[in-house]
Design a protein around this nucleic acid. Structure first.
Lengths: 110, 110
DNA sequence: CTAATACTTTTTATTTCTGTTAAATATTTC
DNA sequence: GAAATATTTAACAGAAATAAAAAGTATTAG
């Protein structure tokens, strides 16, 4: 499944709890329960955050091979490439704006 | 005024209208009115979006020198550095995770 | 001074988001 | 099979976001 777009990514990352989850997942995969305890919110609340993260493509779920009650969540860093590209684009356009401004200064100094 | 943090930045960028504004502003500064017309939302709505963008530090306002009724908005790309740093950090940790995984494979292959 | 312009702020209604508790589902363990 | 475990879904309440309409504030134009 491809990245659903910038919008979902940004909306998912905008919540502090969800960003905390991403922070945890980038170190290693975690169980749903671990994530709930780490963020000090209820299991149901975490479950919903995980669902939005999953829908945004930032995270994927898998059952534990030994105990399929537990669900392991892991990060999908590819989901951030679109966002990074957008930020890079901003940089590029900004650089152009800056150089145009400098050129303008040069011209008016003459 | 320094960047208020990732949270504000991401929340501000999560809205499509606001991101459209940023897209416009990265080409050149615009008047508030122009932005409203470009996004096809009401002036009051745009005014509020501009306020959240301003509070997030992504945008700054200035009065037009010739006609101080009009307000010019311009991008503050510095406001994105924290976000870029956060994304880079994710990359770094992910790379470490990947190499750890490869090391693990090496070991188990022996 | 009056009218017009360019926006912003306030008010109010509507929707969306988060969180909590309770109930449901799926597995495992005994 | 019954009890325990891990997690999700449902139901509902409160908080926050968004938007449109109306009113307000400056500033400029005539």
């Amino acid at each position: 499944m491809s990245t659903p777009g910038l919008d979902g990514t940004l909306a998912a990352l905008a919540d502090p709890h969800r960003r905390r989850v991403v922070d945890l997942l980038r170190e290693r995969p975690h169980r749903a329960g671990e994530l709930a305890q780490a963020t000090r919110i209820s299991f149901p609340a975490m479950s919903r955050h995980l669902r939005t993260l999953r829908k945004s493509g930032l995270v994927e779920e898998a059952r534990d091979e030994l105990d399929s009650r537990v669900r392991i969540y892991r990060l999908r860093p590819e989901a951030m490439t679109e966002l990074k590209a957008w930020l890079a684009e901003t940089d590029a356009l900004w650089a152009r704006q800056l150089s145009a401004f400098k050129a303008h200064l040069q011209k008016s100094r003459k």
